[in-house]
């Protein structure tokens, strides 16, 4: 394991240090005093690497990342897991806007609230299904233009009827699971609200099991509460727009 003190280091220098540590064969990197540095873990392809971070990370944590396990003790800003390919990002704190932006695989677990447009344009292909779980609540445009993947909002310590608006606007694939409920006025016209069925229950059980391990709580208890599912009405909502 190698320790990196990021105090007063700029983003470029910190990311260079991380890459050098990997080249030196380190499998565990522990970074302290992070404050606003962007792109941590950017584009790293490595299935055996674990990065532990203490501090407040800058935008685009784990962008384009492929396989790395990142654990952050502190809050994240915007763009966590931007275009994530695979790996895990776990945030013990809150995160900003566009978590999981265009992710095409991997897992993102956030302990507390997140900002707007979380899960925007996530996509999936065969076994690559990005999964984003939010312990707190989420802002408007949740799952905007979502083409695939799974979003789970747990609303722990939040109102059970979500305050967010325009949820699932432009969505044409994937699933959003919400513990609690939404008002029909607050969802996009491309989605429907459904009850969860047995298959959904199995999916949630697995995902919440993983999430609970990260944050040390019995997530199965949550499954006793009411969950709803948002799903796209059509996988090609604009198919007729230009062709007919």
């Amino acid at each position: 394991m190698i320790n990196i003190d990021a105090l007063n280091m700029d983003s470029r220098e910190l990311n260079k240090k991380i890459k050098e540590s990997i080249e030196d064969g380190h499998k565990e990197i522990n970074i302290i005093n992070v404050l606003g540095q962007r792109f941590i873990g950017n584009g790293i392809q490595n299935k055996e690497l674990k990065i532990t971070i203490n501090g407040t990370v800058g935008n685009d944590l784990g962008m384009f990342m492929d396989g790395v396990d990142i654990e952050l003790f502190g809050n994240a800003q915007d763009g966590v897991g931007n275009t994530l390919n695979s790996g895990t990002i776990c945030v013990h704190g809150r995160a900003g806007d566009v978590v999981g932006y265009a992710a095409r695989g991997g897992k993102i677990f956030i302990e507390k609230d997140v900002g707007y447009r979380v899960g925007i344009h996530m996509k999936e292909f065969k076994e690559n299904v990005p999964t984003v779980v939010i312990g707190g609540s989420a802002g408007s445009f949740l799952g905007e233009y979502m083409a695939g993947g799974i979003l789970v909002i747990l609303n722990l310590d939040s109102p059970k009827i979500m305050k967010a608006d325009a949820i699932g606007t432009g969505m044409h694939g994937g699933k959003i699971y919400i513990r609690g409920d939404v008002n029909a006025n607050n969802i996009g016209k491309e989605v429907v609200i459904l009850d969860i069925d047995d298959d959904d229950y199995k999916i949630l059980k697995k995902i919440l099991g993983d999430y609970g391990k990260k944050f040390n709580f019995n997530s199965e208890d949550l499954l006793k509460d009411n969950f709803i599912k948002l799903k796209a009405i059509s996988h090609r909502p604009y198919g007729n727009l230009y062709a007919y």
Partner: peptide, 21 residues
């Protein structure tokens, strides 16, 4: 614009959150 900017001058905040649209 960024939380890190606030934490630079006050690392131990009583409260921190994003504004609502």
């Amino acid at each position: 614009s960024e939380e890190s900017s606030i934490r630079k001058v006050e690392s131990n905040l009583d409260d921190v959150y994003s504004l609502v649209a």
